[in-house]
């Protein structure tokens, strides 16, 4: 809450910090600077991520929040270069003082799993249906040359750490034989196997029922505290964010709308879009809860409105919003907003 969030990347569009420099103490573990992703699907080409900057501090949790299609998952996946074919990336993704965007493939493979682990949204789809779960959790260890016996013991330990009861009984079962919550725990065990410093969790609770969601969130929070893991959490669910994140990055149509300490941003938004999201959290969270009450459809990143992409849906929109793209600027200490009328946004 008190950490200075990433003032070095405040001015989006100016990749500043020197390459190869050792990270200063307290500096972010991961820094995404002016990320752009151009995606070509068939006949359409669009800049689906347009100048996104954010960071994750060591042992901290940054949340990426926004509606479907806002580019939050794509921003997260571009860090480990897991983007669809035809995606072209530019900008800088600084991990341990190395820009991953121009790192060789071999280096990316080292980073994947061993430095940055990934938890995917739908554990049933994300687990190989015809491999026992233990084999999948231990795969990264086996590939790393660990002896068979050690792998087995370590897999049992990982399953236990992810809160799976009776790991010995479950190590040889297949994903379809487990409940949704247990499957997500398997994913978590798998992400932990390579002992990463950062975990990217893409909607880790979306496919789960509400009680299971709470348990998985508690597990992620516990792991974070026990192991000092940093986390990049992608979610459309503000309640999840309020629960887990230290900083949040609110995304709209492939751009950052607002960024800052989680509680402050969610309680006192400095962007009309964040305010709309925050005001529309219903008592019981559902998948579509935040998308529906907002007026109008989310902007299409392939065909973004001029000026501020949010202006067609914005109650505060004025003529300037239609013509001039608002830059992300520090509107109060530690708070960044890409809104011409940021100071007029009432909670």
């Amino acid at each position: 809450m008190t950490e200075k969030p990433l003032s070095t990347v405040a001015a989006s569009g100016s990749p500043a910090s020197g390459a190869g420099a050792a990270p200063a103490p307290g500096a972010p573990l991961l820094q995404v600077e002016d990320l752009e992703v151009v995606l070509s699907t068939g006949s359409v080409t669009g800049r689906v991520i347009d100048g996104v900057s954010f960071g994750v501090g060591a042992g901290r949790t940054t949340g990426l929040i926004g509606e479907s299609g806002s580019g939050k998952t794509m921003s997260a996946m571009s860090i480990v270069r897991l983007l669809p074919d035809g995606a072209e990336t530019s900008g800088r993704i600084v991990w341990r003082s190395q820009n991953l965007l121009d790192a060789p493939r071999r280096r990316i493979r080292e980073v994947r799993g061993r430095e940055i682990g990934v938890i995917f949204q739908d554990p049933l789809a994300a687990l190989n249906p015809i491999q026992p779960i233990g084999k999948q959790v231990g795969e990264i260890l086996r590939r790393g040359g660990m002896a068979r016996q050690d792998v087995h013991a370590r897999v049992l330990e990982l399953l236990g750490r992810a809160g799976i009861p009776d790991p010995e009984q479950r190590v040889d079962v297949y994903p379809h034989e487990l409940s949704g919550g247990l499957r997500q725990r398997v994913m978590i065990a798998m992400a932990l196997a390579g002992e990463p410093q950062l975990i990217i969790a893409d909607e880790p609770t979306t496919a789960l029922d509400v009680t299971t969601q709470a348990r998985i969130l508690r597990l992620l929070a516990d792991l974070r505290h026990q192991e000092g893991l940093a986390m990049l959490l992608v979610s459309h669910d503000l309640r999840v964010m309020a629960h887990v994140a230290d900083e949040v990055v609110v995304m709209y149509a492939g751009r950052v709308a607002e960024r800052g300490p989680a509680r402050e941003v969610l309680e006192r938004p400095r962007h009309p879009y964040t305010r709309a999201l925050a005001n529309n959290v219903p008592a019981v969270s559902t998948k579509t809860a935040i998308a529906e009450p907002l007026q109008g459809a989310p902007a299409n990143p392939f065909d973004r409105p001029s000026g501020c992409a949010f202006h067609p849906r914005c109650p505060l929109a004025v003529e300037r919003c239609r013509t001039e793209k608002p830059e992300l600027r520090e509107v109060e200490p530690g708070r960044f907003s890409a809104c011409h009328r940021a100071t007029e946004v009432a909670p």
Partner: peptide, 9 residues
């Protein structure tokens, strides 16, 4: 799950 496999390096 192929994406998952890639994410394991």
């Amino acid at each position: 799950y192929v994406q998952t496999a890639r994410s394991k390096g």
